[in-house]
Design a protein around this nucleic acid. Structure first.
Lengths: 202, 202
DNA sequence: GTCTATAATACGATAGAC
DNA sequence: GTCTATCGTATTATAGAC
């Protein structure tokens, strides 16, 4: 056994574990403040480690952000594929797949920063590296809806539009306004029903 | 007459004119890079003046950003009110007002940074001042759709969702991908038809 | 695997001249 | 009305110890 104090022993992780912990923290911080607004020090504090170690693990802030949105996109697609498979296994093959994908999208709101960090990336289209990754990621979702789920262009457009409104309400932290504003309450009810409680700010 | 060289005379404006010129430049820069990503120096260069003068005119970067999104929201509402009045003047009072507001929304894409700077604000809900202004602005649009245009909650939700998808495609600069990606071309066609040419990146 | 110390730079804001 | 010069600070990234 090592002679280090127990506290320090507990805090050491493998590189893989630490990497995941940093991605969790970075997802929340980038989702709230955006690529430029978030600092590697905020990510480090959220992850309970030092700022230089965050940079060391991913090489640069940009590489960390790209890893965050790559993981968010992968989570989303994995969740969609699982929901689609379940739905098909229940013999609903002639119905509307969006009825299975919509609830899956809302459930992902429990995982912090998935929707908002993707959305922050979507707003950086003019950045060479981030913009390309963001467009590719968005188009991968489009391709899933069209090719794997077999949804028509018009229905896929409607599904994505609903998703983008949900993302905006998450970015706005709209539940913060719902206690004092009847309009906010009505908007949240019309968009999310009782699932509005899953939004940031609730 | 002043004895200053003509070049300098031409470049001098009243405070009001200069204020508008700075807001135009700031709208484009904030729209592309977001509140934190944009620098007051980038705004200054785009406006053809010095960085300290930008700060002097608005007091702070935050005050400038708040002025940008306030003006963008006002432009949008003004455009909506005009379109609604025109539509009603043509005796279409029993149809769907969204058929008049949709085209008005797309026409605003010609004014640089309106959609994207608002969208960048919507993603800063956790910021005390910007978040409050963003939520209030969004709810003012909602109130217009519901109270002035008389649109149902469900239809207003659908209209906003379509708008948010358009904003995301603008933030992504999706036309950049349309030449090499059939999926991008299909997505743009399904969402905007031939109006996709108005998006940034086209 | 993780830290402290620090270098290098970029940025917002102020002071003051013209 | 507008500029130049500059201060103070925040931030990314590196070096090197343990």
């Amino acid at each position: 056994m090592s002679s280090l104090p127990v506290e320090q022993l507990d805090r050491r992780m493998t590189a893989v574990e630490r990497r995941e912990a940093i991605l969790d923290a970075a997802s929340a911080v980038f989702g709230e403040r955006g690529y430029f607004g978030a600092t590697t020090d905020q990510v480090a504090r959220a992850a309970g480690i030092s700022q230089p170690y965050v940079v060391r693990m991913f090489g640069s802030k940009e590489a960390l952000f790209l890893a965050v949105i790559e993981r968010a996109k992968a989570s989303l697609l994995q969740s969609f594929r699982a929901a689609l498979a379940d739905w098909r296994a229940q013999g609903a093959a002639d119905g509307d797949p969006c009825e299975a994908l919509g609830p899956a999208y809302l459930e992902m709101l429990r995982e912090r920063g998935v929707h908002t960090s993707l959305m922050q990336a979507f707003m950086q289209g003019s950045d060479p590296a981030i913009g390309r990754a963001a467009r590719d990621g968005f188009l991968e979702i489009w391709g899933f809806l069209r090719d794997e789920a077999g949804i028509s262009p018009e229905a896929a457009r409607g599904f994505l539009a609903d998703g983008m409104l949900i993302n905006v309400l998450a970015g706005l932290e709209m539940p913060r306004a719902a206690t004092s504003s009847a309009a906010a309450a009505e908007l949240l009810a019309a968009t999310l029903g009782d699932k509005a409680a899953l939004l940031p700010g609730a």
